[in-house]
Amino acid sequence: MRWVAVWRRNFLVWRKLVIASVLSNLADPLILLFGLGYGLGALLPSVEGMSYIAFFAAGTLCSATMFTASFESMFSGFSRMHGQKTWDAILYAPLTIDDVVAGEIVWAASKAWLSGATILAVAAVFGLAASPLGVLALPVAFLVGLAFAAVGLVMTVLAKNWDFFSFYMTLIMTPMTMISGVFFPAEQLPRPVLAVAQVLPLYHGVELVRPLVAGRLPTDAVVHLVVLLVYAGAGYAIAIMFARRRFSA
């Protein structure tokens, strides 16, 4: 449990910069949610039996969680690892690179969870998530956070410079957001595209969160949970492997 000290270090920084941090993590998704939700929602009949904004709120919850986890593990993580050499300082203490990787991933997931949870709370206040089942979206959001934090940290420990992240953001995250059912039902996509979405983690987060927020139990919940767990677990293992290579060479 030594990694907790790493988590607490990041938490203390976050607490000192809390207003800017929360604003940057929430302003974008909430503006998008209400802008697109009401604007586009006025043109659309119900989607999958709910108003468009309620449909989109569940998607936003997942995509905001994904973005917060990814930004924290990649950009902030790289800054701590490479720019500030915070990881080096930690490694002089009786912590290992495995502890640092674990602390970073759980921290990024925690921060991501807060984004997801806040969006859920806002949605509830606006009557978009009335069911008590919606509470179950909270642990799912944490799992989505873990999956993207772990994958993001793999990118970080492989990165030579900041530009490296643009490839992952532009070539993977942005298209994934489009095809994973955040903005519109993924089922209306051509089969091969849907198949791609189904091997990526975001789709499974959306498939779990949307029914829960609408007050239904998700179908194939176990499959979705397993995919997210595999991404989190494999990302963690791969991040540790490359981090060890980078730091104890």
């Binding site: 030594r2 000290a5 607490r8 270090r9 203390l12 920084v13 000192k16 910069l17 500030q84 050499k85 915070t86 080096d88 300082a89 930690i90 203490a93 009786p94 912590l95």
Partner: peptide, 20 residues
């Protein structure tokens, strides 16, 4: 490689936590 986000005292506090 002091922690630029922290004060002098916070640097020592956070570092001590790494030693449990």
């Amino acid at each position: 490689n002091l922690d630029p986000d922290f004060t002098v005292a916070e640097n020592l506090l956070v570092y001590g936590r790494y030693f449990g």
